[in-house]
């Protein structure tokens, strides 16, 4: 019999990492080894995570597909489901349905420079693709990461930022919004688009990936375009509200485009064709 498409896998919360105020990362492992064996995903895809009795919530898979046996997600405690998730402890059971959606075309990016630009809680989808590329480091030329948050405390994956900072094969530019810095802060101060403009990465043979709140995306695209990036070489992810994840519940569409099926990864060229309903 076909598998019930609404039935989640049961996953064990194997590890909880506190990232920032109200932001946590869960490492999830399949309870059923056979399900773990058959499961695969590609970077960029998302899933439905659930607490039984509270409901489902949609996040990207934040771990790279190069690391097998688990998936990770990072979420901020906001609504009913994320609050319930936040109340869980290591060893508890959650539901996981997925993977859904398209992926970052990392094979097409081979031999190119990569510029990753992320803001706030939008680093998770980026983290998946960053680690996937770093795990295949020789396939890509220069890798630069721009990451900003409101305050130093709001930066997520602090331990990994440190790791990227120390790697000679990664250029990391961190920034916090004006007023968000601490006396010890050594990074930049300013909004992400401003810092990108200041550092001015070359558009030559380069792919840019931008993830962040709508306002950051809207302000970063023009900067990249000014630096000479073509819209086809600028990627982002959309995060419209979803319930099913597979094109039926009717929520996430932007015009005729379904974020769950056609996305969540889009190029700036594709976004330009969409109505402003995201």
């Amino acid at each position: 019999m076909e598998r019930n498409i609404y039935l989640p896998y049961r996953m064990k919360v194997a590890k909880i990492t506190e990232e920032a105020p109200a932001v946590r990362t869960f490492r999830l492992e399949f309870l059923d080894p056979a399900e773990a064996e058959n499961f695969s995903f590609k970077t960029g895809q998302f899933a439905e995570y659930s607490v039984f009795g509270e409901g489902e919530s949609t996040f990207c898979i934040a771990s790279p597909h190069t690391r097998k046996g688990y998936v990770e997600c990072t979420f901020r405690q906001v609504g009913r489901v994320t609050t319930a998730l936040s109340n869980l402890e290591e060893g508890d059971t959650v539901g996981f349905r997925g993977p859904y959606g398209n992926t970052f075309p990392i094979d097409e990016w081979k031999g190119k420079n990569l510029v990753f630009i992320a803001g706030g809680i939008a680093l998770p989808p980026m983290r998946s693709v960053i680690w996937t590329c770093l795990d295949n480091r020789k396939d890509y030329k220069d890798i630069s990461i721009f990451y900003g948050a409101k305050t130093v405390n709001d930066l997520v994956y602090k331990h990994e930022l440190k790791e990227w900072e120390e790697r000679p094969d990664v250029n990391l530019y961190q920034t916090v919004d004006p007023g968000g810095e601490t006396p010890e802060w050594k990074g930049e101060v300013g909004f992400v688009p401003t810092i990108v403009e200041k550092i001015a990465p070359s558009a030559e043979n380069t792919i840019a990936v931008v993830c962040g709140p709508p306002i950051m995306i809207k302000n970063t695209f023009p900067v990249l375009q000014k630096l000479g990036f073509k819209d086809e070489n600028i990627y982002t992810t959309l995060e419209n509200r979803m319930k099913c994840g597979f094109g039926k519940c009717g929520r996430c569409n932007v015009g005729k485009t379904y974020v769950c099926k056609d996305g969540p990864v889009f190029t700036a060229a594709q976004l330009a064709e969409l109505p402003n309903e995201y």
Partner: peptide, 24 residues
Amino acid sequence: CACFDIQDETKGSKGQRVRLWDSC
């Protein structure tokens, strides 16, 4: 019109996940 919502309905330790009509 087939747009829907997905919700959990729990009573004590038991419950069910349900699909409900919803509207744009």
